[in-house]
Nucleic acid binder design. Structure first.
Length: 283
DNA sequence: CCGGTCAACTTGGAAC
DNA sequence: GTTCCAAGTTGACCGG
């Protein structure tokens, strides 16, 4: 049974969630299933806008209305700060060890995707050989050196995506194949997004907790107001919005709607007396 | 041995 | 058709 069932008190309790319009209107929070994008997997995910476009502030809100009077409670968290802290976590350095690796079996598609010039550069710049020591074609794990990682991170800070020219230049500078640079950036963006999702998730959890608390508090307040209302005279039990005062005779009028005979019935929409547009509605 | 990390891969969709 | 990217996966490697 609903908690407001059977008693038209005119009290309205609302739970809301608003975000700074400028931020959210470009990147709406979009819960989704991966079936949007990928029908191979049944896993679900929460997708948000990219890091740079993440909402900078959410304002969880809880509203309590008494016949048109609205009390609103909002909470605010600084997303920028949270994001910065999360990003800082990502900049740790991998421990350097062997940089020897092998070419993995490059796909036909990849060969096709690369321009001939790029393929040539890859061949020349690769630190690895086409063959493993034992002649097998299994892929070995490449670990980037500290310097390589640092430079890639530095570059990523400047722009999270690379155009072909930047990719070539960076690859040359790092003595890596352009493909490796490309893959590193792809993986780096994925990590950033993952981290951001975790941060967002934590944030939403906190919001949910605070709103639950606030909801509990307002429910209690609502019960108290209802109890108070029952103790009042009959005419005062009418929702405030349905009461009109005639400015000339100063008499209180009830609901004029013929469908609502009972003084306890709520008007579908709160009706406010406006002396300019609605002269003496009560009479 | 196991779980975490990360480079490399595959696939599919969007933009051109 | 080509290219780029996101999402998901694989497999090597490492530390506990």
């Amino acid at each position: 049974m609903g908690f407001d069932d059977g008693c038209n008190t005119g009290l309205v309790l609302g739970l809301g969630f608003t975000a700074t319009a400028a931020a959210l209107d470009q990147t709406p929070l979009k819960p989704c299933t991966t079936t949007d994008h990928d029908q191979r997997s049944k896993k679900t995910c929460l997708r948000f806008g990219p890091l740079a476009a993440a909402p900078t502030s959410f304002e969880p809100s809880l509203t309590l209305s008494l016949s048109g009077e609205t009390y609103q409670v909002t909470g605010k968290m600084d997303m920028n700060k949270v994001c910065e802290e999360a990003a800082a976590d990502l900049y740790r350095q991998p421990s350097p060890h062997s940089t020897v690796s092998s070419f993995s079996n490059a796909s036909v598609k990849r060969e096709r995707d690369l321009g001939s010039e790029e393929v040539e550069i890859e061949r020349l710049s690769s630190r690895v050989s086409d063959e493993d020591e034992d002649g097998s074609n299994g892929r070995k794990k490449l670990r980037l050196t500290k310097e390589q990682s640092a430079l890639l991170e530095e570059s990523f800070k400047q722009h999270s995506t690379l155009n072909p020219k930047q990719k070539q230049a960076l690859a040359k500078q790092l003595n890596l194949r352009p493909r490796q640079v490309e893959v590193w950036f792809q993986n780096r963006r994925a990590r950033t997004k993952l981290k951001q999702t975790e941060v967002d998730c934590e944030f939403l959890k906190k919001c949910c907790e605070s709103l639950t608390d606030e909801n509990r508090r307002l429910q209690k307040e609502l019960q108290e107001l209802k109890a108070l209302k029952l103790a009042q005279p009959l005419y005062m039990q009418l929702p405030a919005a349905t009461l009109t005062m005639c400015p000339s005779c100063e008499r209180i009028g009830g609901v004029t709607d013929g469908a609502s005979k009972s003084p306890f019935t709520m008007a579908p929409k709160p009706h406010f007396y406006n002396p300019f547009t609605n002269p003496s509605a009560a009479c």
